[in-house]
């Protein structure tokens, strides 16, 4: 009896564990002064949670103009995917400041190095951008939150955002 009860109790835990094990996890890490926060977000779980969320959280209503711009974003993504995998699009060097926008495989990268310590490193997976466009419901003028989370799952593992500004550091990465 105890074994059955234990098995029944552990079932949700096992299910959750299984989902997490098969899920991308987005890790948000903030390091500032005395504060150190790490928030791991299993994206599969987040998608499930959104399904049970109230409608305000489930759907993200947008201005009707957004729907007009998204097809262009989709085409931008297509064009960016078509250019060479190592294309350097913008590079600005101004004293110790260095800004670079370039493509690395299927990821657009933005690097800003201000020389005196501030550094910004952003990786934008083109697959995620494409999935984000797909998450938009044209008829209802809204994003479906679960599909936006799904768009993040299309991101390859590694850093998405890494900002170092003096003693403060923000790190968002996929794992």
């Amino acid at each position: 009896m105890f074994i059955k009860l234990a098995a029944l109790t552990m079932l949700p835990v096992a299910l959750v564990g299984g989902v997490v094990a098969n899920s991308s996890v987005m890790i948000v890490e903030v390091d500032a002064d005395d504060v150190h926060i790490i928030v791991p977000v299993p994206l599969s779980l987040a998608q499930v949670a959104v399904a049970f969320a109230p409608d305000e959280a489930k759907y993200i209503q947008m201005d009707s103009e957004v729907g007009e711009y998204l097809p262009y974003l989709a085409r931008f993504v297509d064009e960016l995917r078509a250019i060479p995998a190592d294309a350097m699009l913008v590079e600005v060097i101004d004293g110790s400041d260095h800004v670079r926008v370039f493509k690395e495989d299927d990821v657009m990268r933005v690097q800003v190095d201000e020389g005196h310590g501030t550094k910004v490193n952003v990786r934008i997976p083109l697959a995620s951008l494409a999935a984000m466009v797909d998450a938009y419901d044209e008829e209802e003028n809204m994003f479906r939150a679960s599909r936006l989370v799904g768009a993040l799952r299309a991101a390859p593992s590694g850093d998405l955002v890494h900002v170092i500004d003096g003693d403060e550091e923000v790190h968002i990465r996929m794992w």
Binding site: F76, L80, A82, I83, A87, L89, V90, V92, D94, G95
Partner: peptide, 15 residues
């Protein structure tokens, strides 16, 4: 010493 270097595919600019 300041330099700006921009390379853009025409297909992107077309969009």
């Amino acid at each position: 010493g300041t330099s700006v270097n921009v390379n853009l595919p025409m297909s992107l600019i077309s969009v």
